[in-house]
Amino acid sequence: MRIAVFADVQNIYYTCKQAYGRSFNYRALWQQLSMSGQIVTACAYAIHRGDEQQLKFQDALRHIGFEVKLKPYIQRSDGSAKGDWDVGITIDVLETAATVERIVLLSGDGDFDLLLHKVRDKYGIEAEVYGVPRLTASSLINAASAFHPVDSSLLL
């Protein structure tokens, strides 16, 4: 089975920290997914702040096998921040869906529910979600062919 993985890094980072006080283990996920098929595409979408710890983390993702896609961190004048990858993730999923049998999305963001419905209906493929149970939108869980709760086996 050909698998494509799309990681909403900011969402997974903050939900794991909020729920468990721990970080997500991307290597454990990679090993888990590799047992059920061949990972042919893996993208991790993150915000670039340029700090040393973040650069080490991005290098670790690349070493595992992820293509790391970065957007600049933008601080608005009102103090709020911008750094959203939803459109980029959506485009990449839609461009990849015809070439794989399984899409795996790491996110709890309910904005992706329409995307999962679309790829399941149009391409007849599995569209699975890994997310923190109490912080994943129910609409996203319902749109997925399978929901995999992030638990201690996927945490550092």
Rank of each mutant, 00 (worst) to 15 (best):
Met1Thr: 07
Arg2Glu: 09
Ala4Met: 08
Val5Leu: 14
Phe6Val: 13
Ala7Thr: 14
Ala7Asp: 10
Ala7Ser: 06
Asp8Trp: 13
Asp8His: 13
Val9Ser: 05
Asn11Leu: 01
Tyr14Ile: 00
Thr15Glu: 02
Cys16Trp: 06
Cys16Gly: 02
Gly21Arg: 02
Gly21Asn: 03
Gly21Thr: 04
Phe24Arg: 01
Asn25Ser: 05
Asn25Cys: 10
Ala28Ser: 05
Leu29Phe: 11
Gln31Asn: 10
Gln32His: 12
Leu33Pro: 01
Leu33Gln: 00
Leu33Trp: 01
Ser36His: 09
Gln38Ala: 02
Gln38Ser: 05
Gln38Tyr: 06
Ile39Asp: 00
Ile39Asn: 00
Val40Gly: 05
Val40Ser: 04
Ala42Ser: 09
Ala42Pro: 02
Cys43Gly: 13
Tyr45Thr: 12
Tyr45Gln: 08
His48Ile: 02
Arg49Phe: 12
Gly50Ala: 09
Gly50His: 06
Asp51Arg: 03
Glu52Asn: 04
Glu52Trp: 07
Gln53Glu: 09
Gln54Leu: 11
Gln58Ala: 12
Gln58Tyr: 12
Asp59Phe: 11
Asp59Tyr: 07
Leu61Asp: 00
Leu61Thr: 07
Leu61Gly: 00
Arg62Pro: 02
His63Tyr: 15
His63Ala: 12
Ile64Asp: 04
Ile64Thr: 09
Gly65Thr: 04
Phe66Asp: 03
Phe66Ala: 00
Lys69Ser: 11
Lys69Asp: 12
Lys69Gln: 11
Lys69His: 14
Leu70Pro: 03
Pro72Arg: 09
Pro72Ser: 12
Tyr73Arg: 12
Tyr73His: 15
Ile74Arg: 01
Ile74Asn: 00
Arg76Gly: 01
Ser77Tyr: 08
Asp78Ser: 06
Gly79Cys: 01
Gly79Arg: 00
Lys82Arg: 13
Gly83Met: 04
Gly83Gln: 03
Asp84Cys: 03
Ile89Asp: 07
Ile89Val: 15
Thr90Ser: 15
Thr90Phe: 14
Val93Ile: 14
Val93Leu: 05
Glu95Asp: 15
Arg102Asn: 06
Arg102Thr: 13
Val104Gln: 08
Val104Leu: 09
Val104Phe: 08
Leu105Arg: 10
Leu105Glu: 06
Leu105Met: 13
Ser107Ala: 09
Gly110Thr: 07
Asp111Gln: 08
Leu114Met: 15
Leu114Tyr: 15
Leu115Val: 03
Leu116Val: 06
Lys118Met: 13
Val119Gln: 10
Asp121Ile: 10
Tyr123Thr: 07
Gly124Phe: 10
Ala127Arg: 06
Val129Thr: 10
Tyr130Ala: 00
Pro133Glu: 10
Arg134Glu: 10
Arg134Met: 06
Thr136Gly: 01
Ser138Asn: 10
Ser138Glu: 11
Ile141Trp: 04
Asn142Tyr: 07
Ala144Lys: 06
Ala144Asp: 06
Ser145Ile: 06
Ala146Thr: 01
His148Leu: 00
Val150Ala: 01
Leu154Asn: 11
Leu156Lys: 01
